[in-house]
Each structure stands twice: as structure tokens, then as C-alpha cells.
Design a protein around this nucleic acid. Structure first.
Length: 491
RNA sequence: CGGGAUGUAGCGCAGCCCGGUAGCGCGCCUCGUUCGGGACGAGGAGGCCGCAGGUUCAAAUCCUGUCAUCCCGACCA
């Protein structure tokens, strides 16, 4: 029914792009690759932020803020890190503009060249570790558990709203520890935080795993990740947690005095999740009618639409609506009463469906007369007329049910879209016809991974945590393999 | 950076081949009737046709250049 929204089955990419715009989540900016996040889209991000932020605080982290600009020389201190990010950095070279002498507007003042050029952070490891050097002297200063909410810039070639933009919002945690074990534990803990958030809040099932060398974060020893599966059968990395070993400590000379009096490099982690999660949320659940939002992240959980007859709203109807409104609010439910007389009910129904509001209540003269109300759920598109008595309890339960239902639906989709391949032919066939996650044996080399990528476009998304070990042969080289890994075409 | 396409009203498009001074749908504004799944009628506002040159009596239309955007590849959360 939604006007002009392409069907997922016919044009998935077009469906996504249109949905983001039509549901008022975001739009393109005058600057290529950047986006304007509109109020409704930003509200979802705020929900993500507050949910994650609480989990970070609950695990002992505190927020801080480090600067947007990083001296160019910092980036080059960690060899792998610079190699990973150098190609996509925005660089600030001047600090002043002036009026053009030929009267053609404004130009960069060539006199105002910076002594040392600044890069706009693509991530903050370097500036943070250079700061940690001063903050950490003794084992008493550890662990240092810090997170920051910030924007970062990575000059991407091809961008898509939320999924990949040149500037994006994220959080990045940066921690320092006395021992390797403690840092690894932290890395895994934060991966689990992301997984729990994705599943409990976003209703998006994820695989937890470790990245292969070629997919690893530049500068990390190990990258842990959560991988979600989108409805078109492509994988989305939804959060990463890196064990940095002592790489950054060595690059920035961050040492601490141990209890025994020796001087040692600290062990680091970093972990991040971005506005990409909003893209994942959209692609995980939404349908041809528009967004489907999990109640825990929906900016509006319930909308009440009055059906007006004749001149406007009857006082009785208004009274009933307000009663329900208050009862719902007392239950902690976010509810909107849309009493605008500038739009017809049918228009509003379609609008809130497009925007993914989980529950809609419609209230008309008939209901006022009979003490009933129409309750409709977004996830199943079903509706029924029920007694208005105790509606708040019913809505509360329904929100929980919807949250659970869309998770189960996404989980079933992932299970149905996960296949095993025992040969290259089988592997290719699955990717071409079904998509999704493909479990297959791999000989453990980057060369083989690269060849498979070249042939099929699929990459190793992760080596699952707690993977079952089983002897087998690599689907490409036939060399021995100890376990199957997860392949997929990815965003 | 290669290959392809497109720039005309807020959005989506037609007009261009065959030059004659701009049109359709949606949206917007006013009034009225409507309101239980994107209402209807009547009236109205809005565009130096991406930009710069050229050809011509005359250019959205032909020619040259330029800029921008989108799609497909190489890179990536």
C-alpha cells in the first residue's frame, strides 16, 4: 500500500534507499557521502545510544571525549594501523580563508598553511594512546576503561545511508590493562555486550566470532565481531571488539610499573558500534509496507488514532483517548496521540506503518459507544477490536510479544539461510541461488580466502566462538582443515 | 581511478530526434464536502530547463566545454 516503495523481492537496494528517505530517517547532504540524520532517524540512534551506554557503564566504563583532529604524525606510529587507514583520511591543511582578490568569492589563504597537517579522525586509537601514556604510570592506574561517543570520517568511495557514509556517528571504547588475559577478557566481554544488545534490544540475532587476518582491524592482534544476516542474504558486521595486544602501547610507549617494580607495556582493547546499526535494524525486520521496529528501540511504541465524524472530535472520545494515553504512559510506554484533523485516519494508518510504530490503537464513535478499541500490530499487520478496559496491560504484553516475535522471525530466517558446503561447486551454488551464511572448511590461509573472494564475492565473516572442531578438507585447496568457518557476501 | 547513464517546480518525470519562449503526476496554499485503510470538487502559488560559451531572427531542444549526481567495478564499520 505504501506509495512508491519498491518491493524487497524486486529491488532490495532500491527498497532500502527509498525506505530510509520515506520513513524520514535520513537524507543525503550537499557533501557527497555524508548524511543528514532526520529527527525520527536520530531518535532511533538515541535509543541505541542510551541502551549501549547503560551497558558500558554497567561494565565499569566511563565516557570521555578526545579531539576530532589528530596530528598527521600520530597515525604513522603504528605500522599496520597507518596502512589500514591512510587511504581514506580527510586532511586539514589550512586554517583560514580570505576574500578572493579577483572578487570571486572566498578562497583558501595560502599564507595560512598548517605547520603539521591534521587528519580528521578515522578512529581514535592514536590520539588516545598518546594521551594514555601520560595517564598510566603504575599498575594502580589500571585497568583504564574509557568510552567515547563521537563522529569519525572515512573517505569512502561508495556510500549508502547508514550502512556506509563518509562521516558516521559511533562509540569507541579504549581500554588498557595490566595483563594479556585481562585484555582478552575485556575484548570478549564487549563482544558479548554487543551481541546481547543486538539480540535483546534490536531483536537481531548475531553470530559471535573472530575475524581472519585479512578482515582484522588494522593494528589489532585479534578482532572479535558480531555478524548479522540481512533479509537479502547478505551479512552485516554489526559491532567489533579488538584485542590490541601491546601494539599501541609499544607505538606510543605506554608502560606501567608492576607490583614487583618492573616496567611493562600495557595491554589494550578497542571496540565500536556505529550508526550502521540503524541500517542493520532496518534491513533485519522491515517489509514492503515500511519499517518494522522492535518496541525497545521504537521512538513511538504506540500511536492512538482517533476516527472523527462530522465536525471534529466528540468530547467523550477525547476523554476516552486521554484516559488510555495516561494509563499507557503510567506503564512507561511511549505513546503518541495523533489528533491532527489535517489528515484522514487511513492516511495516518499508512504513515505509521511506514514508520514502523509497533502498535496502533484506533478509536472511533463506535468504540466510544461500546467501550471498545481497535488494536493493530505492525509486525503481523493484524488487528482486532477489544474491550478498552485494561487496554494498558494488553498493550504492554503485546509490545513484549512483538519484540519476541520479530526476534524469532529473524532467527528463523537466519537458520533457514545458513547452509553447509562440502565442495566448491556446492559453495558456489548456494551463494548464487540462496545467499546467506555458508559454513565451509578452509585451509586457514589468506591466499585461499582471497581466491574464494575473487571467485564468489564471498568473504569469511568469522570463525565462530565455540565452533565445533571437525576434521575436513578446504573446499578450494583440499588441504586439511580443523573447522568450518562462516562465509557470506557482506555489506 | 576505469565503464555506463542522468541533470527541466519541493519530489518523480515528459518535452529534446524534427529549435518558435515549458508541461504532467505527487506534494504545497485557499474554500467546501469528507474522515473505521493513503478522500473528492473548485480555485491558486511555484521553474533565468546544472553552469559557461557558441550556432541562429529565435535554444530546454543543435554544437563545444565544464561541473555535479547516480549506477556497475577496484577499497571499506
Amino acid at each position: 500500500m505504501s506509495k512508491g516503495l519498491p518491493k524487497r523481492s524486486e529491488d532490495y537496494a532500491g527498497w532500502y534507499n527509498e525506505l530510509v528517505k520515506k520513513a524520514d530517517l535520513a537524507e543525503n547532504s550537499p557533501v557527497r557521502g555524508c548524511m543528514v540524520i532526520k529527527p525520527y532517524g536520530y531518535s532511533i540512534w538515541e535509543k541505541i545510544q542510551s541502551g549501549l551506554d547503560k551497558m558500558f557503564k554497567d561494565t565499569g566504563h566511563t565516557n570521555a571525549y578526545f579531539p576530532l583532529f589528530i596530528p598527521k604524525s600520530y597515525l604513522s606510529k603504528e605500522a599496520d594501523h597507518v596502512e589500514g587507514f591512510a587511504k581514506e583520511c580527510a586532511v586539514v591543511t589550512h586554517y583560514r580563508l580570505k576574500n578572493d582578490e579577483n572578487g570571486k568569492g572566498i578562497v583558501v589563504d595560502p599564507e595560512a598553511r598548517l605547520e603539521e597537517e591534521l587528519i580528521v579522525r578515522p578512529t581514535s586509537e592514536t590520539v588516545i594512546w598518546s594521551t594514555y601514556k601520560n595517564w598510566i604510570q603504575s599498575y594502580r592506574d589500571l585497568p583504564l576503561l574509557i568510552n567515547q561517543w563521537a563522529n569519525v570520517v572515512r573517505w569512502e568511495m561508495r556510500t549508502r545511508l547508514f550502512l556506509r557514509t563518509a562521516e558516521f556517528l559511533w562509540q569507541e571504547g579504549h581500554t588498557a590493562h595490566a595483563t594479556r588475559e585481562e585484555a582478552v577478557e575485556e575484548t570478549i566481554r564487549m563482544m558479548n555486550v554487543y551481541a546481547e544488545f543486538a539480540e535483546q534490544h534490536m531483536a537481531m540475532p548475531v553470530l559471535k566470532g573472530v575475524k581472519t587476518e585479512s578482515e582484522r582491524f588494522a593494528g589489532a592482534v585479534d578482532t572479535y565481531c558480531i555478524e548479522a544476516l540481512m533479509q537479502d542474504g547478505r551479512a552485516l558486521q554489526a559491532g567489533t571488539s579488538h584485542f590490541l595486544g601491546q601494539n599501541f602501547a609499544k607505538a606510543f610507549d605506554v608502560k606501567f610499573a608492576t607490583q614487583e617494580g618492573s616496567l611493562e607495556y600495557v595491554w589494550g582493547t578497542s571496540w565500536g558500534a556505529s550508526t550502521r546499526l540503524v541500517g542493520g535494524l532496518i534491513m533485519a525486520h522491515s517489509d514492503d509496507n515500511g519499517l518494522v521496529l522492535p518496541p525497545r528501540l521504537a521512538p513511538i511504541q504506540v500511536v492512538i488514532v482517533p476516527i472523527m465524524k462530522g465536525k471534529g472530535m466528540e468530547p467523550e472520545m477525547l476523554e476516552m483517548a486521554n484516559k488510555i494515553l495516561n494509563a499507557l504512559r503510567e506503564k512507561g510506554i511511549t505513546v503518541k496521540f495523533d489528533d491532527r484533523d489535517t489528515h484522514k485516519p487511513g492516511w495516518k494508518f499508512a504513515e505509521y506503518e511506514l514508520k514502523g510504530v509497533p502498535v496502533r490503537l484506533a478509536l472511533g464513535p463506535r468504540d466510544v459507544e461500546q467501550g471498545t478499541i481497535e488494536i493493530a500490530r505492525r509486525d503481523t499487520l493484524t488487528k482486532e477490536t477489544v474491550s478498552a478496559e485494561g487496554i494498558e496491560k494488553r498493550v504492554k504484553d503485546l509490545l513484549d510479544e512483538i519484540q519476541n516475535n520479530i526476534y524469532q522471525k529473524a532467527l528463523k530466517f537466519r537458520e533457514d539461510s545458513t547452509h553447509e558446503a562440502n565442495s566448491l561447486e556446492e559453495f558456489t551454488e548456494i551463494l548464487e541461488n540462496k545467499g546467506g551464511f555458508v559454513k565451509a572448511h578452509w585451509d586457514g590461509t589468506a591466499e585461499t580466502e582471497a581466491k574464494i573472494k575473487e571467485m564468489t564475492k564471498a568473504t569469511i565473516r568469522c570463525i565462530p566462538i565455540d565452533n565445533t572442531l571437525e576434521e575436513g578438507k578446504c573446499i578450494l585447496t583440499g588441504k586439511p582443515s580443523k573447522q568450518k568457518v562462516i562465509f557470506a557476501k557482506a555489506y
